[in-house]
Design a protein around this nucleic acid. Structure first.
Lengths: 335, 335
DNA sequence: GAATTCTTGAGGTACGTCAATCAAATTTCT
DNA sequence: AGAAATTTGATTGACGTACCTCAAGAATTC
């Protein structure tokens, strides 16, 4: 009727129910020979665990934390919204999530946040710094699984990365920048901080493609806006005073200031930014921004939770589990 | 943690478990007074039926069908791939899916396919025709829930639509077409068939934006390529013989022919197509195509299955459950 | 007032898995 | 050979709901 059960597997493998259970939920204490026999039996019978029954029976609760920056980006708000949307599914899968906000680019604050965690796994979006790496190492040592979110920390020893390919994000921005700009011109790049790996990687990709394929454009030295609206606004205005700007690539947050500044420029530069927020959505609609490259936070949350669950269960997550797609929005496909 | 159960409801309502069960699954034989008391208790306790447990107890298996066209688009292949990827998860959730292929734009064949279904719910991607509407009505009447996939059938009375906003897809294509084309020029639009609602809606959106905002371009009369590579190739070559083509918007399938034809044109027109397949991916990479607007079939499958499950369980699916995002691919963000 | 229906209670079994126990069998070590 | 460790079996009780039976109580009908 409803497919083979553990019972059938046990029968085929010529072992007891308990042994099948031990193998399936790798609890250990089973000889290699028997493990193979059970696994073969699983394949032979076509057994697939009944998730409903499993979740019903399992009383395990997964406790996960998200350590993410507050700030003008509204990232925390979006994360909250995404989690709220997934709440039902999370509850069904026995997952409890807590969000720990930190001040952006404030390493001390990030470290403090990492110190006071009480959970099975954590997804962190933090700066790249040796002190952070140490903190992550000690988390890992104490058995907490660590996933880097959006901004990778390859040298920290984190268990996995969940986020977009940021180099590709920068390359994509350059592709559209190059095609949207009619003639050659000056391109202003504004990052939040180059210590944030997502920002530096995007910058890298952007510069690569601009130089490779759109060498009529002149790249101005990259500015750092600290994800702060006022700073970003000032950077744009200061730069525009000395020379015309044909294009702006804003890598980090602070788009509120960017909207204000771009509004005063004539001719309006081609403006490409990251993250679809209220502000960038509105700016797209009015034509202030020309393109928004967005990472789907909801998909990111789902992926992160999935990976953290796998890690907590000592399962190796699928290779592409952490890869988040980039969404490209123009004024016509805002959602 | 895991919420109130029927037990709690029974206690609050001061009745037995059996009576709560009778009310919840309206089996009848309960006085109005007690029914009210139980319902009040449900509200008061915030009881929500645990679907997993319910389905487990019921031994329920969800049987879903996908009625979709074969053809050069490789849609069936992509659907198969997407289903294969999701197979494990689907089986864990007691979902069995069957794919029923039909000949593209062949209404008779589509009707025949709809006649021989044996399932709880069906996702259909078919033409818009009165006979089809009738067939869907009779499916609905017999208790089968019907979801329209990718191409909506609003007048059929289907329970839900799962797919992208096709007007938006066309508008988006126009946005990028307008910005990519340096000067004014002739735009060739090739649909598969205007009887397919997804195609006609895309065309509509494309024309709207081109006329509104890029009126330097001249829209040639829309051609119909029947999703056939040879036909599409011929259309392009025939059109190019008489006048220069600045842009091509290919709405349906048959991209293999498009690649061949565009390769012979000089200067190469800006080419925007739908669906990220092997062919379009390769054409993006080589620069033959400039943009691909893709509907994530995997996301579509997941959404469709979710909606069908909800419908089968008599749950109203969330308002945005059927909305599939459009993904925009340039040569730099192919995935 | 008896016979009838209707309403409610009490209890059980099943669904498939997880998780834990204790005992028995087997292997490994000394 | 005996002790210790490892591996396996047998069994049990959740988890929350569905669905069934049997019996007793209440309300209705004649």
């Amino acid at each position: 009727m409803s497919g083979p059960t553990v019972r059938d597997v046990a029968e085929v493998a010529q072992v007891s129910l308990a042994t099948v259970d031990r193998v399936l939920n790798n609890r250990g204490g089973v000889s290699a020979k028997v493990v193979d026999r059970v696994k073969a039996a699983v394949v032979q019978t076509g057994y697939v665990r009944n998730l409903a029954a499993a979740n019903l029976s399992r009383r395990r609760i997964y406790r996960f934390c998200f350590v993410v920056p507050t700030g003008d980006t509204g990232f925390v708000a979006l994360l909250h919204a995404a989690l709220a949307q997934e709440q039902h599914r999370l509850r069904e899968e026995q997952v409890v999530v807590q969000i720990v906000p930190t001040r952006p680019f404030d390493v001390e604050d990030q470290i403090a946040a990492l110190r006071n965690l009480d959970c099975d796994a954590v997804a962190v979006m933090v700066s790249e710094a040796p002190e952070i790496n140490e903190e992550i190492a000690s988390l890992l040592a104490s058995g907490v699984r660590v996933v880097s979110l959006v901004a990778d920390l390859p040298s920290s020893g984190r268990d996995a990365y969940v986020g977009p390919d940021n180099v590709m994000a920068g390359r994509t921005a350059a592709e559209f920048m190059g095609r949207f700009i009619k003639d050659a011109g000056n391109i202003l790049m504004i990052a939040g901080s180059l210590a944030a790996r997502d920002h530096s990687e995007r910058l890298l990709g952007f510069q690569m493609v601009m130089q490779e394929r759109f060498d009529g454009c002149t790249l101005l030295p990259a500015a750092q806006g600290a994800d702060d609206a006022a700073r970003v606004e000032q950077i744009v205005l200061d730069t525009a005073r000395d020379r015309p700007i044909a294009g702006i690539y804003a890598i980090g947050a602070g788009n509120r200031g960017l909207v204000r500044a771009v509004g005063t420029l004539d001719p309006k530069p081609v403006t490409i930014v990251h993250e679809l927020t209220q502000i960038s959505r509105e700016a797209l609609r009015t034509g202030t921004f020309d393109l928004v490259i967005d990472q789907d936070i909801r998909a990111g949350v789902i992926a992160a939770v999935g990976v953290m669950r796998d890690l907590t269960d000592s399962i190796t997550p699928p290779a592409d589990a952490g890869r988040i797609k980039l969404n490209i929005y123009s004024r016509e496909n805002i959602q």
